Structure formats: structure tokens, C-alpha cells
Amino acid sequence: MHMSHVFILRVLTGVVSTALLASSLAAQERVEVTINDTGVQAENLTSGRDGTVYFGSTAKGTIYRAAPGAAQAEPWIQASTAGLTNVLGVLADDARNTLWVCQNNTGGRGGAPVVGQTALRALDLQSGAPKGTYNFPSNGGVCNDIAVATDGTVYATESFANRIHRLRPGATALDVWIEDAQLAAVDGVALLADGAVYVNTFFSGRLFRIPVNGDGSAGALTPIETSLTFTRPDGLRAVGAQTLLQAEGQGRLTEITVTGSRAEVRVLREGLTAAAGVTLVGDRAFVLVERAKAVVVPYARADRR
């Protein structure tokens, strides 16, 4: 390579590295991310590798996005154009350039007409363009949260129907992966390095592991004994080989380290009003509070401490 080309390459590399560093520092400077709208009623949030933070809205169906380092999330995917009515779980899947969304219907109470279809939705992570819609078998329960395995299998919890749905790579429809009475009000879902699916239940405050059998089917539902009890556990995210972060409705952010059928729970922050979701950006946990904003809690992953 000509020396002038080497020099140019080094300059460009330096520019890119500087930009990435600046973006990382900006992200770390945020103390909270607010949503630039009213009456949003966000239920969950997620983040991409670049530090972009995404929020859903149960009240409006719109999806909001805060650029890396930005302290405010702006309307991004409008409910009226995307066919969204009630968004709960959202999950950024960088590996597949997909934003997975739990879309739910509205109405149905007191004779009111049902509006919309409960479904797992796939949207382009960069443009927001629709990529796929996977209806729940019955337009009844609540699509709550989402996790994606390394092989691309997607798992979505259905609260109040005691089940978890699965979307296999290349499939055009969901299938019911597991249904069990112990999964009443199943909420958050995540996968750890052992390949098992972990879920919590909102009302009973329990944590379960569900192994994935060799043929992809669900193994035996196993309760995990925890060193602290949970109160209204909600958003659940994997942040290490054996480690989860969990937002609890009682106002607590906890770290859960699973070993076998027991988990050690470490309280990271209390006093978080109506904590409902959590996502990790670098060494900062962004916790959804008050259904309207994310507050930043410094956090060093177990494998970095």
C-alpha cells in the first residue's frame, strides 16, 4: 500500500475512533432520557449496540427513539401509519437489524369493540419499515415481552394466558412453546449462556428456568430459589453468562446471578417509582420509571468487575 494511502487510512481510523469515543462519552453523561410527548404510558424500553434507546407506548401505540447520547426520545414510528395500537415489550435485535414489538389490541371491555390484533411485530431497526407480523393464536391475551436466542429463535410471553410463544427462524407463524398454570401473569423473558429461557411472573413474584430440549421443545419448568423475594417483577434482561437485570414495580432494580436452581439477588437501586423495564447501554442501566422516562443507574457487569 502506498504511504499516502496508509496515512489517509490512519487519519480516517482516528476520526472514526474519536467519533465512537465521543458517542460513548455522551451516552454515559445522560442521567435520564425523557419522552417528548404526553400521555405515553410506556411499558418497556430497549437499546441498540450504538446506544440508541427505544420506548413503546401502551396508550398511543407510537414508538419513540432517543439517538445515542440524546436525553430526549422523539416520536419515531407513528401508530397511525404502522398499525400499532398498544405496544408493550420492545427488543432491539442488532444481529438481525430488527426491532421486535409486542403489539396488543384495545377495547373489548363493557361491549366496546376490539381494535387491532395482538401480535409479535418485526420492524427494521434502522428505518422502522415493517418486516413481519405474527398474530397470536387468539386475539385475547397480552403480548408482554420478547427475547431472542443466538440461533434467531424468538420467544414472546403472553400474560394472562400462562404461555410463551415461539417464532422459529424462517417460520411464518408463531407456535405455542409452553403453557403452564405456574406461568400466570408471565412477564419478563431472557436467555442466559446455558441456552435456557428465564421468565418472571408479575403477581406471584417467581423466577423460572425452562430448558430448551435438543429438538427445540420446552423442557421441564423449574422454579429458581432467590435470595430475596420479588414484588411485581417486570422487565428482565440478560447482561452476562449467568446474570440478569430486573426492574420491579415496587421501585427496585436488581441484579440476579443464577447458579443451578438458586439465584443471588443484589439490589442496585431502590426508590424508582413504578419501575417497569431495564436496558443496558455500556456501563449504564436505563430503567423505565413513571411510564414516562428512563433514569440512568451506573452498573458494572459481573464480568467487568
Rank of each mutant, 00 (worst) to 15 (best):
M1N: 09
S4R: 12
V6G: 02
L9N: 07
V11S: 06
V11K: 09
V11D: 01
T13C: 12
G14W: 03
S17D: 00
S17I: 02
A19Q: 13
A27H: 01
E32A: 11
V33N: 05
N36P: 00
T38A: 08
Q41R: 12
Q41C: 03
A42D: 05
T46H: 03
S47N: 14
R49A: 15
R49M: 10
F55W: 09
A59N: 14
Y64E: 10
G69P: 10
A71V: 05
A71C: 02
W76H: 04
Q78R: 14
A79L: 07
T81M: 06
T81A: 13
T81S: 15
T85H: 15
N86M: 09
V90Q: 06
T98A: 15
C102S: 12
C102F: 06
N104P: 02
G111N: 09
Q117S: 11
Q126Y: 10
Q126A: 15
T133K: 13
T133W: 01
N135W: 00
G140A: 09
V142C: 01
N144W: 02
I146W: 08
V148W: 10
A149C: 08
G152S: 05
T153D: 07
T153S: 15
V154Q: 07
A156Y: 00
F160S: 15
P169R: 12
I178V: 15
A184R: 13
A184P: 00
V186Q: 08
D187K: 13
G188Y: 06
V189I: 15
L191Q: 11
N200C: 14
N200R: 05
R206G: 07
R206P: 00
D215G: 09
S217H: 11
A218F: 10
G219P: 07
L228S: 13
P233T: 04
P233A: 03
Q242V: 06
L245P: 14
G249E: 09
R252Y: 00
L253M: 04
E255Y: 02
I256T: 09
A263P: 09
E264P: 00
R266P: 00
R266S: 08
R266I: 15
L272V: 01
T273N: 11
D283H: 14
R284Q: 14
F286H: 07
A294E: 06
V295W: 01
V296T: 14
Y299V: 03
D303E: 15
R304L: 09
R305F: 01
